[in-house]
């Protein structure tokens, strides 16, 4: 139809005969051009869907996206956006009871600004906490020990570059948001 302005091609294909008994008008099927896989979406018009439940004469038309096949196609073509592959943005290292209580407040501030944030729940060895951050691919780690608490600052470590800088929590938020 003029004005429908599609980016993908529609092709009349007489061999398309899905659900012959069910459909009464147009029938559609979608094929991926760059991956060998069956139909990834289909549908059509049916004229008597509700007749069997006592409401005849109601025409309908519908489509159904095949989520499992679309999943495979997106995997094969590596088309998933980066944000579907990231977890938490910021992890606070736990240095003990007093520090953790302070970090919980800072973490709340970061979360309210929309940054996915975790506070490590146990005051275990630093090495173990850093290894957790590495395996989880957390991009930023916040180290708030006794001196940072007194200064009102956060030592923020960029896990990719290894760089570390002392910032206020507002600066941390602005910095991470700027990087995203």
């Amino acid at each position: 139809m003029q004005g429908s302005d599609l980016r993908n091609e529609i092709e009349l294909d007489l061999t398309l005969a899905r659900g012959l008994n069910y459909y009464t008008g147009c029938i559609f099927e979608v094929k991926a051009l760059d991956v060998q896989i069956g139909s990834i979406t289909g549908g059509g018009r049916y004229d008597n869907l509700t007749g069997i439940f006592g409401l005849p004469g109601l025409s309908g038309v519908g489509i159904s996206f095949g989520a499992d096949r679309i999943y495979d196609v997106l995997n094969q073509l590596e088309l998933y956006p980066a944000e579907t592959q990231t977890g938490v943005d910021l992890l606070f290292i736990n240095f003990g009871e007093a520090e953790a209580a302070h970090c919980l407040r800072l973490a709340q501030a970061a979360r309210r600004a929309g940054i996915k944030t975790e506070v490590y729940p146990d005051a275990v060895k630093m090495k173990k906490q850093m290894s957790y951050a590495n395996v989880q691919c957390v991009p930023y780690v916040a180290l708030v020990g006794e001196s940072e608490m007194q200064e009102g600052l956060v030592a923020l470590k960029n896990m990719q570059t290894g760089e570390q800088s002392k910032l206020t929590i507002d600066e941390v938020v602005a910095y991470i948001k700027g990087e995203q």
Partner: peptide, 22 residues
């Protein structure tokens, strides 16, 4: 058809929409 076109454009998957009529 526009919905199909929009969804696959958002995914970045190039498709051909086959159509026929019973």
């Amino acid at each position: 058809m526009q919905i199909v076109d929009e969804v696959f454009s958002r995914f970045g998957i190039r498709v051909c929409i086959k159509i026929n009529n019973r």
